[in-house]
Design a protein around this nucleic acid. Structure first.
Length: 511
RNA sequence: GGCGACGUGACCGAGUGGCUAGGUAGAGGUCUGCAAAACCUCCUACAGCGGUUCGAAUCCGCUCGUCGCCUCCA
């Protein structure tokens, strides 16, 4: 079946119809977090978007291999920093092993992503486990003449590379412009032949804890290298889709492309490069360096970072999906509260579906000729409407994964469902087949593709207490029918009622 | 300075040459013991100024404003 899924490719600056390199296999890579601190809301957008992307690709019938890495090699905080990296810094502050830091935050990250409804990636490679592969890429780059070693560090020769390639093709920059705009006050540049060159292997200073042996001495890989190496290892020289936040476009992804072209891969690493936009707070980008971030764990729990209350993971997921991934999103209480209501409305719709499923209606037609009956069914006035609403669900998704439009059409379909559920005459206008298709599509899009699920809100113990109060009332009134009924119902839930001298209590059934 | 986004109704947020998404909030109504939910109706916007066009929120120009990347960042 043809499905006109098109995706915006940063590399070509336009929407392209999606065609896998090796159908039906599809390789997707998302740049994961550097695990040295708690994940914030901004960190969630890429994973949520790519979760929907991979879910949708699977829905379309592709066999997807989704790779989302964990960067646990302590990269330097900046070129100006000598020897200190993020992880070592955090480790020293907390007096523990750097790998403990990495493990701790990687665990937390996975918890948060799972809470947000993101399916675990198929492969979650860690940079520290792929040092050999990264060294290999460095060696290839040197072999191809695009890398040079200075004092145990290896740099990528950007001007040399630019002679035959275009460094800057992803982020639309020219080497000339960049050279003109280079700041000349950066420290640690003396080893580089050009200010544009970037480290692909860095010599470890004595105080640098995370270090590995290499042909160039003890050191650690450059901060763009792991993605190139791991993408190639698991998705081949050319993957289908590679993504990350807009702020990764330059230099991170630009360098990745240069590395892959400069290595024996000789490719752009991925055919389609996708970038999600930033999340802002009061119009300003949320970032660790600015300190204006909202931590995911915190916002699930209670007020934090300017928000007056907690927002559930599913509310957050819905909130993110209610805008298109390439648009910036601003967070606020008002926006989140509106999202929460919308999300619950969608969930109530989900619960309604069971009541709508193929009612055996129109018995009046029973005696009609069967063919005539079918023809009537497919031409019923309500059908066209319903079929259109159903088809609309996928229009937005196919247009560069526009979840905002998809959600809007879900609400349109839901309104129809609500009407059908309360208006028998309207229901009679609709054929069972169209209804069934619509119901199935709604469920598929909400649950399987958008990955939204019902979050239990009711407190079971409180509901139980309420039931027990009715039980007590019935008992007092000697309404033993009622009493037995309640006992039986609770028994069915694995709960037994105990009438003690102290009052009514309950326990889990031991049967 | 270089490159690039964006400015939509009370709020959030799609769309992008004619058919005026959607959610939330607000007003009125149907339903209802009271509610809730649901449904119906209303509030109908595209920063400003020019231009192109039969027609622009949508294309072009200018102005104003906001933001991002160019340093780690999702």
């Amino acid at each position: 079946m043809q499905h006109p899924l098109s995706l915006y490719n940063t590399l070509t600056r336009k929407k392209e119809e999606f065609q896998p390199v090796n159908p039906p296999q599809v390789g997707v890579y998302l740049c994961g977090p550097t695990v040295y601190s708690e994940a914030h809301l901004g960190n969630a957008r890429g994973p949520v978007v790519f979760d929907v992307l991979t879910r949708y690709l699977r829905h379309l019938g592709y066999s997807v291999r989704y790779v989302r890495n964990i960067t646990d090699v302590g990269h330097l905080e900046s070129d100006a920093d000598e020897g200190e990296d993020k992880m070592a810094k955090a480790a020293r502050a907390q007096r523990i092993e750097p790998m403990q830091i990495a493990q701790h935050y990687a665990n937390r990250y996975r918890q948060n992503m799972l809470a947000l409804g993101c399916l675990p990636p198929d492969i979650e490679p860690q940079a520290s486990g792929h040092i050999t592969e990264q060294i290999q890429v460095v060696a290839e780059i040197i072999e191809n003449g695009f890398g040079y070693e200075v004092n145990g560090s290896v740099y990528f020769d950007v001007p040399k590379y630019n002679e035959a390639n275009r460094y800057g093709k992803l982020s639309n920059r020219s080497v000339e412009d960049q050279l003109a705009g280079t700041r000349d006050n950066l420290a640690g540049q003396d080893e580089k032949r050009s200010p544009l060159d970037f480290a692909i292997w860095k010599k470890a200073t004595p105080e640098h804890i995370m270090r590995w042996p290499s042909p160039w001495g003890e050191g650690f890989p450059g901060w763009h290298l792991e993605c190139s190496a791991m993408s190639r290892k698991y998705l081949g020289d050319l993957s289908d889709i590679h993504g990350g936040g807009l702020d990764l476009m330059f230099p991170h992804h630009e360098c990745e492309i240069a590395q892959s072209q400069g290595s024996h891969s000789h490719t752009d690493e991925a055919r389609i490069w996708m970038h999600n936009n930033m999340i802002t707070v009061n119009g300003t980008k949320m970032s660790k360096s600015l300190g204006n971030f909202v931590l995911l764990g915190d916002m699930f729990q209670g007020p934090t970072g300017g928000l007056t209350q907690a927002y559930s993971p599913q509310t957050v997921r819905f909130f993110l999906l209610q805008s298109h991934y390439r648009s910036p999103v601003d967070v606020s209480d008002e926006a989140l509260q509106a999202a929460r209501k919308g999300y619950r409305k969608l969930m109530n719709g989900l619960r309604l579906l069971d009541k709508l499923v193929v009612s055996e209606q129109a018995p009046a037609n029973q005696e009609d000729d069967r063919t005539t009956d079918n023809e009537q069914r497919t031409t019923l006035s309500g059908d066209a409407d319903l079929r259109k609403l159903t088809a609309d669900l996928f229009t937005g998704l196919n247009d560069d994964l526009n979840t905002a439009r998809c959600i809007a059409s879900l609400f349109n379909l839901l309104r129809k469902f609500n009407t059908l559920a309360t208006t028998p005459t309207a229901l009679a206008e609709v054929g069972a087949e169209a209804l069934q298709a619509a119901v199935a599509a709604y469920r598929t899009v909400v649950v399987d593709i958008l990955g939204l699920q019902d979050e239990p809100r009711a407190n079971a113990e409180q509901l139980l207490e309420l039931t027990l109060s009715f039980y007590t009332e019935a008992k007092t009134a000697k309404a033993y029918d009622k009493v037995d009924q309640i006992r039986a119902a609770l028994k069915g839930q694995g709960i037994v009622i105990k009438d003690t001298k102290a009052g009514v209590e309950w326990a889990y059934s031991e049967e």
